[in-house]
Every structure is written in C-alpha cells, then in structure tokens.
Design a binder for these strands. Structure first.
Lengths: 270, 270
DNA sequence: TAAATAGTGTCTCTCAGACAATATACG
DNA sequence: CGTATATTGTCTGAGAGACACTATTTA
C-alpha cells in the first residue's frame, strides 16, 4: 500500500516535471481536463491511416458423423463469388463489443446465438487483402446442427460444408488457414476438455460425444477412459432419457453450466 | 475430389446466375478482373468509419525473485501521464505483420527483440478509449532482465515495475485488466510448459526456474517432480557450468530450440 | 438366438506428490 | 564441522490405456 502511494506521487511529479510552479493539486485538475477536452475535440481518427478491420467466425458443428463448418459465398469484391467465413465490419453504433459483432453476423446466418464462442486469433498483415493492410479478429464458435438448420436453409448464400470438402476448396483471403488454425485449437481442446460437446444437440449420448472427439483427434479412444474421466469430473447430467441406435439404448446427457470451463489435469494421448 | 469440382462449378454458376448468356469461361476472366480493378481503384477505406486500432505488449521478466512488467508513461492524450503498456499504432508502410508492430515498439523501449512473443487476446469495445470504439491486439512477451537493462535505463519513460506494485497503480485504459489476463495465461503455461524460462537469462539453474514457476503459480512445488518432468522431456541442455548461491553450486542449463513448444501431458497441481 | 451397440471390471503403466536421504559448496 | 543449497531415492496414489466381459436393445 505504501508502494502504491509513492508510485502515484512519482506519476504526478513526472507528469508535470517541466510545468510552472503552481501547486500541483490545483494545476492538475484544470489543465488535465482542459487539455483533454481540447484534444478529444480536435481528434479525428481518420487522420491516421489505419488497417481495415474485420471480424470472422469459424462456426463448427457435428452432424451425421461429420465435422462441418458454416461458409458464406461472398457477394462483394474483393474475392467476389468465393466462399469464405461469415464475418464483417464492426458497426460502431450498434455493436458495443467485438463479440456483439460476431454474434450479430452469426445471427444473420443461423438465426441463433451459438452456445460457445471464443476468440481464436487475430491475423493482421499487409498482404491478406488486396485493399491493403488488413486485420481480422477470428473467433471459433460451436453450435448444434438442428438448432439452426431451418434458418440456414433460408439463407441463400450460407451453407454447412464438411471439413474434408472445405480443405479442397479455394476460399477467400486466408480463410483456409484460419479454419485450419481453429480446427487445430479445437483438437487440442478435445484432449483436455469437453468443449466440443457444444457442437452437439443440447442432449447427447456419450458414444456420440466420443465419436466427435475421435473425429477431432483423428484417432480412436478407449470407451472406458473417456467415460471415466467425464464421470469423475461430474460434468454431465443424466436426463434419464435414452436413445437407441440399433443396439442397446444409450443414456442421454446434457452439460452442466460450467462444464465448458473445466479442464482435465491429464490430457488424452495425442 | 469430385465434391471439390462440383463445388467450384456451383461457385461459378452462382456468381453469374443473372449475367448475360456469354460463355462463362470467357466472361469470367474479363468481368472479374475489370470489376475488381474498378472496385479497388474506387475503394477508399476511410469512407468506412472503423475502430481505432492499436497493439500492446505485456512484457514480463523475472529479476531478484520478483516478477516484473515493463510499463511506459504516456506522453500523449488521452490518459496523459498515466503508466500503461508499451504499444502503439500499426505503421502501414514499415510493418508487414502485427508482430512487426509489437517488435518495433518493444525494440524502442528495450533495444532488443524478446525471445518469446505470443498473441494474448484482442480487446475491442466502445468504452475502453474516450476517443471512441477502440481495439487493441494484446501480446505477451518474455525476456531476460539483464539483456535489456542498460537500454531500458536510457529510456526516460520506460520502467520495470514489480507486478505487486503494478496491481495497486491506476493504469491507462484497461491495461490493468490486460496485465491480469496475461499473468493468468502465463500461470497456466507454468503448469504445463517451461515457457516462463524465456523470462530468465539464456542460462539458468533449475532452482531458479522452479522459483519462477512457483511465483507464477503462487504455490510451492516439489523439487523432485519439477526436475523429473523436465529431465524426462529432455527440454534443457546442461552447459557444464555451475553457479553458486551460498551452498552447493547448481548446474546451469539453457533451453533447447523447441523447448518452448513442448507441453506436458500431465499438468502440475493447480 | 444373433448382431449391434452401450456400459463395466480390472490390470498395468506412467508420472506427480511427498519427503527423506545424500552431495557439494562456503565459512 | 555446521550451515546452506542442490540433487537423488523411493514410496504412494491418481488416472489413462488396454481389453475382456456383461447388459440391453432389435431383427
């Protein structure tokens, strides 16, 4: 606490080191607010040439034993006609945060807000967009296929595409690389969390969740190990319902509120 | 592969769905390049009001049994006089990537490039800067204290401050929160990697590294466990040198090239 | 009953935690 | 030698991997 006070003192002193000898406590309030008001009034951020700023989302889902990602076909230059990630510009009036921007864009395409949204990475350089220096803040999102299928079907330029298919396509900008990055990060999460469960319906079976993790990790997992760790961490609630897939019916679970934040201390084998 | 081709076809067809009946393969090349050229010529990104974009770095080091962060005192409005993170605007001419921007800013203050630099998080909202909608791409960086001490001493507005001291200060913008975020992330890394080692000199002892991890985690660690996992993963090179701290001299190690990327499958206790 | 899918029992092996024991400096 | 710090030995326990076994459904 004493270090705090002495730091504040240093701060104030340095700030007005070369100012006239008026008592600091008077000078401070006045000049500070005046100067700042003046500054903000004069300030026009357009005088600084700044990079183009966009927000993009890699929205995954799992449907019919297949990882899919939502793409939209570009209706504007540049890269007109190519498929790419849903995204766009920040609306300085309507959006309060960057998440608002992503959610708004995803809402337009899917009709709903994804239950999982996390910032992935910001990519910015001089070459990724022909218009010049450009920055995109990329997000990873997960949602159930059924929850938005009807709405997506009504949006002419939006479509769920299997990841394997997407890998062969010529996407806009560096969106192919961004998808790879998102997938790799999600693969990691599959090793130490059950975050991928957000790509399933609200209730799901354990074999279903395991299959999703296996698809992400690219390798089979031991049923026993998979169940054991989830049971011990008490991440799921047994709904009591069952779902049959031709054999013994499987128990239907839903996630506990905080299940997405839980991380196992020990990873699954890579 | 066939799905790839059919996708491309869809793409082209959709793109010119309402265009005249000229053969597509002719029409495509022409109109596409023409339109795009025109578009890029007309394009002036300043016509779109976009958020203010900055880059900031949380640069940590470990010196005298103490975690420190490099802060600079602001010499401009807004928040003039307050201490904050080193950072600034992208130089659209000189910087090719966002990393260039951070490295340039850190170079100015420390005289060197940090051996560890990783994107932390991008924070963007309407309130964090009085000038309006503002976005900062925050990075975490680590470097040795000695490597830059001399240069930092020559920079009047830059200073290493202990994290405990910083926690009590009134920093510019949301920099306090960004530092917390960076610290928390580094704490996590201390549980499953030896990334914190980049905050030490190029050669260091194991007790030294352990002390750093303990400072980050906020809890004592078992010497044996700590050494064992590092030895088994073969992350360090024994330089053969020793350093004495009053008792038995400790072996001096340096990191292998890829040691920073290694993650243990099993975390230390939280 | 056979096939299919779900779920369990149990052994092994790896590795972190605990802590005692030993090693090598300096005064 | 006594003190300080570094390094090792070794036991315990948690939890993942392997895989065989049991359970519950449909055809």
């Amino acid at each position: 606490m004493s270090s705090f006070l002495s730091d504040k003192k240093t701060q104030t002193l340095r700030q007005y080191a070369s100012a006239p000898k008026t008592p600091t406590y008077l000078l401070q309030k006045q000049t500070e607010t005046m100067d700042e008001k003046q500054f903000l009034a004069d300030y026009d951020k357009r005088q600084y040439d700044s990079p183009l700023l966009t927000v993009d989302a890699v929205l995954f889902t799992y449907h019919e034993a297949c990882l899919k990602v939502l793409l939209v076909q570009r209706s504007n230059h540049p890269e007109l006609g190519k498929w790419g990630l849903p995204g766009g510009f920040v609306d300085l009036i309507r959006d309060i945060t960057l998440e608002d921007t992503v959610l708004r864009k995803l809402q337009e395409k899917t009709g709903i807000e994804p239950p999982y949204l996390e910032q992935l990475q910001t990519i910015g350089n001089a070459q990724r967009d022909k218009r010049g220096w450009s920055v995109t803040i990329a997000y990873t999102a997960l949602m159930a296929f059924q929850a938005c299928y009807a709405h997506v079907a009504t949006v002419a330029d939006a479509q769920w595409l299997a990841l394997d298919t997407v890998a062969e396509m010529d996407l806009a900008f560096d969106h192919q690389a961004i998808i790879s990055l998102a997938r790799e990060r999600l693969r990691q999460k599959a090793l130490y969390s059950i975050v991928p469960a957000y790509a399933l319906e609200e209730t799901f079976t354990l074999p279903e969740l395991q299959a999703l993790h296996e698809a992400l990790i690219g390798k089979g997992l031991q049923k026993k190990s998979f169940r054991r760790r989830i049971e011990q961490a008490e991440l799921l609630i047994d709904t009591g319902e069952k779902r049959s897939e031709g054999g013994r019916p499987a128990a239907l679970y839903k996630m506990k509120k905080s299940a997405g934040n839980y991380t196992f201390v020990r990873n699954l084998e890579d």
